[in-house]
Design a protein around this nucleic acid. Sequence first.
DNA 1: CTTTTTTCATTGACAGTGGAAAAGAACCAC
DNA 2: GTGGTTCTTTTCCACTGTCAATGAAAAAAG
Lengths: 393, 393
Amino acid sequence: MCPAPLRETVPATTPAASLVFTTVLSHGPLTRADVARRTRLSPAAVTKAVRPLMEVGYLVEDLDAGARPAIGRPANLVRVDGGRALFIGLKVTGDEIIAVLTDLCCRIRVARHVPLTGREPSAVLPVLLAMVQELLVEAEGFGVRVSGLGIAVSGDVDRVDGVVRYSPFLDWRDVPLADVAGTATGLPITVDNDVRALTVAEQWFGAGVGLSDFALVTVGAGIGCGLVVNGRVVSGAHGVAGEIGHLSIDPLGPLCHCGNQGCVEVIASDPAILREVRAATGRPLATAAEALELARGGDPLAREVYARAGAAIGRAIGSVVNVLGPERVIISGEGLAAYDLFAEDIRTAFATSAFGTAAQCDLTTRPLPFEEWARGAAATAIQSFIGPHTPQD
Amino acid sequence: MCPAPLRETVPATTPAASLVFTTVLSHGPLTRADVARRTRLSPAAVTKAVRPLMEVGYLVEDLDAGARPAIGRPANLVRVDGGRALFIGLKVTGDEIIAVLTDLCCRIRVARHVPLTGREPSAVLPVLLAMVQELLVEAEGFGVRVSGLGIAVSGDVDRVDGVVRYSPFLDWRDVPLADVAGTATGLPITVDNDVRALTVAEQWFGAGVGLSDFALVTVGAGIGCGLVVNGRVVSGAHGVAGEIGHLSIDPLGPLCHCGNQGCVEVIASDPAILREVRAATGRPLATAAEALELARGGDPLAREVYARAGAAIGRAIGSVVNVLGPERVIISGEGLAAYDLFAEDIRTAFATSAFGTAAQCDLTTRPLPFEEWARGAAATAIQSFIGPHTPQD
DNA sequence: CTTTTTTCATTGACAGTGGAAAAGAACCAC
DNA sequence: GTGGTTCTTTTCCACTGTCAATGAAAAAAG
């Protein structure tokens, strides 16, 4: 009579359960008492939230005695059983799709990528769906169902409706990605902006854990920035935020396609650096990697370009920090391969442009393997899976 | 036996009551049904929240039939009875204390200011307390008790502890203002940063009502910025945020005391404008008002200075908007007296520096009479009075 | 001039959430 | 053992806000 439920129930049914689950998820194995202290819930509430989550296997008792107190009853550690559920994360770029299969703790189990031949939705979607199928097959090998699919796309993305409003890079407008992917795969879909997705991953599983205010700066083909303020990811009133790529750093700098001069992006993005190194040295370099090699080899002109790029990034970070006063800035991105060349310049430019207390802000760097973007997408899927009661901090 | 309560109970005891009260407070007279729709509470919950608030007189039925629907039972409007409680707001500047007595709707009933002879806490506090006494006497004339005192100070202020951590302007460090004022007056005290206080006033009673993301930019002796993101005022991880005064606009501009060149504040603050007009015209002007007069008179060199100031402000606003994507920016401050001189420049500079969707952001200007700062302080007191369940939006 | 329709407001029953207090459990130290 | 300490669970309960039904007040319809 009663039809079988189409999807596994979400782990957290009440705000308290959600809070407990996300706390354990982010802060690793914890005792119930610890969870109670962290969440400011009563111990009783924690016990009651943990039990049903254990019964369905999302939480498990961690038998590594480990952190037992010197005195008193030994504590039982509780942790999330990552293997209990799988998620697929996809990042769609202009020329490829990067895909990962992760567990509930957002650890990557499988990573793939396929090139794209066209950018129109009609060219991308079949490849995307084929990739999902491929990973679903992989997932069978783990004997666990896939509980969600996250898709990250650059540009203006409406996560609530799952619509890509406008992606300049892909030249997409108003593509109802969640609907399409949902009907095709039957999975719960989360669509979000790529930088925001990466920010969610850092907030829950990375260098942003436990911070109520931080920024994530990505350096690569473009310069992006994700923000967490008061424990919540910032989306802006119109769905767009963190556009630091077009902060104007040098009014006399090169002309940017946005119409201004000296934007961060036209000084410090990978293509900009390549262009500048080419111009400075007169060599016909083809890729950013070649420019990097030249600079690493000690070419002073090339190094100068990297120094300028670092200074621009540092000043952009300084602006963000002055405005928001975050606790930490995480610097990441493909461009980080050149980090050794401009780390110093980023820090000095930041230090001089940060005003007052803002200078206390911690700068952390973090390598960004190519699968990381897709992992961010998986993180958003995990977030959706856990439920609507996302706690603010 | 049972001692009389020392202070009136706060209006809102439950989250729902708080939500209802703040909704009615900000959105003027509303029908219960409207409140229910706005807050997404059930109609029953609204009725139950309103009743006790009416019994103690904070809410009243508004008998101005006014907005009756074309069909169906006519609605009863509910509004806050502003006269039911009074609040004192104080702003401490370097050379005077500005004070207001407001009602619960943050309407100014009495405004005062006294000059200060010294900046040390020992010189300021007696004057401050005398001012409070004076307004308490005034308040007796209204036959209503004063329910809270808000104090606004520039610099790094910890609202939770009521401590002025560091105010460069006053040269205060770690002054426990809330404790001192609390024991001296017996009133509940709220101490906050001045710009944040102004932001709260706008969020609850001004041009920020109903917006989840907006910025408030103040132009005057300094350039400040208050931010509301996701419906909450931004304080930053270290208690400081919105420091746009030292965003560097022109790397070749005048040297700022912060060590950088071409900060907004060294181009567009009142003293900076005065200095520049003096330098450009060679005239021995004494005040910003004289410089303003000169520019209004048509002096091209003076006008040029204002145009540069406007452009700097516009670009600073552009930076904030690119980073946060607010729905609106409210431009205010004493410097707004000169608004006609640089309005155009602000807008053009903003338009060129705002990227993509960010340009949709609405720029609003709002005059800032001198009592406004003190009114901001009163708004924080009202916020504290209503209770800890401040809703996020 | 009823009756119906529509919307607003209230009531009382109720489900569900999380807290308080007390008891139980497991260990160490003496 | 006994007492002390901390973690965990249990039981009971206060409380909040929703549901569904009911009442109220007006306009529109018959």
